[in-house]
């Protein structure tokens, strides 16, 4: 057994993480801590690699360099069996819920229990109804995933993610594409579940107001680095240009409006290469 840790020790510690995809650097040596019992938000423009970061934490991807420790264990070097054990202690909420489409809501939530435990069916039923009650969808248990709205699907996925009582939940853009009401529901759910179940939450989002309202700490990623970090208030007050551009939604700034391109005038005059390429 690992020695009793100070409660302040982070659940996840990421050090000098470097990751490339098709030769393109996605992360260039980032350091990041996820504290126990807190909601940590990870924000950044689309395509910075937020989803990639969650996959790295879950061990679905292996970094090129650096370390990711979960509860004191090195994820990047864990063998397959160990990784699967560790994953039982993490829940992940995918962007669109990723419910198994060939089973109904009840079976989806029961799925991890049936796969990983030998509990008798009546006990599974109690657990499933409990989790569904927590997300307010006990009445929807006979519906198929295709019959659910986007917000409901995410809540079911959340019930599924907490089925095995994990230590940590990773949320991948839970608010994207939600109407204000279901957004409000999700915001409150994330916060209350974090409190009531004693979870640690990692929230990937670019909905500034919502994320800021429930997170204890925020990391701002851009260009493969952590460009700003702190509590919501600290970020609002910081003089980091990155933070200001992102928080205020300015079109141009450190994150350029233009995708890297040759000089405009020169490009216009250069002529026919696109047509040639198309031919």
């Amino acid at each position: 057994m690992a020695p009793q840790r100070d409660n302040d020790e982070p659940l996840v510690t990421i050090r000098d993480l470097t990751f490339r995809r098709d030769g393109r650097v996605i992360f260039d040596g980032i350091d990041l801590d996820i504290r126990r019992g807190r909601v940590t938000a990870i924000m950044g423009p689309s395509g910075t690699g937020k989803t990639t970061l969650l996959r790295l934490i879950g061990g679905q991807l292996r970094p090129e360099r650096g370390s990711i420790r979960f509860a004191g264990e090195e994820i990047t070097r864990a063998g397959r069996g160990r990784l699967y054990e560790l994953r039982k202690r993490m829940g992940m909420l995918f962007q669109n819920g990723a419910l198994l489409t060939d089973m109904n809501v009840y079976d989806n939530v029961a799925f991890p229990l049936r796969e990983h435990t030998d509990l008798p069916e009546p006990m599974i039923r109690d657990l499933v109804l409990m989790k569904l009650e927590a997300v307010g969808l006990r009445g929807a248990r006979r519906l198929m995933p295709s019959q659910l709205s986007g917000g409901m699907a995410r809540r079911v996925a959340l019930a599924r993610a907490i089925a095995l009582d994990p230590d940590m939940i990773l949320y991948d853009e839970p608010f994207t594409g939600q109407d204000p009401i279901s957004m409000g529901v999700l915001v409150r759910l994330i916060r209350t579940l974090n409190e009531s179940l004693g979870l640690t939450s990692v929230l990937v989002s670019h909905d500034i107001a919502e994320a800021a309202s429930i997170s204890d700490y925020i990391y701002l990623l851009a260009g493969g680095r952590v460009v700003a970090q702190g509590t919501a208030d600290q970020l609002y007050e910081s003089d980091s240009q990155w933070a200001q551009q992102f928080l205020q939604g300015l079109p141009d700034g450190p994150v350029p409006f233009h995708y890297p391109a040759p000089d405009y005038a020169g490009d216009l005059l250069a002529g026919d290469e696109d047509r040639e390429a198309a031919a």
Binding site: R55, Q60, Y84, G91, A98, L100, F111
Partner: peptide, 22 residues
């Protein structure tokens, strides 16, 4: 393919269920 596109296979992996076997 659709299970992959809708991240169901990834979700299985994150639930510690091997999609190849399951």
């Amino acid at each position: 393919g659709l299970m992959k596109a809708t991240e169901q296979l990834s979700a299985l992996e994150m639930m510690a269920v091997d999609p190849v076997r399951r």
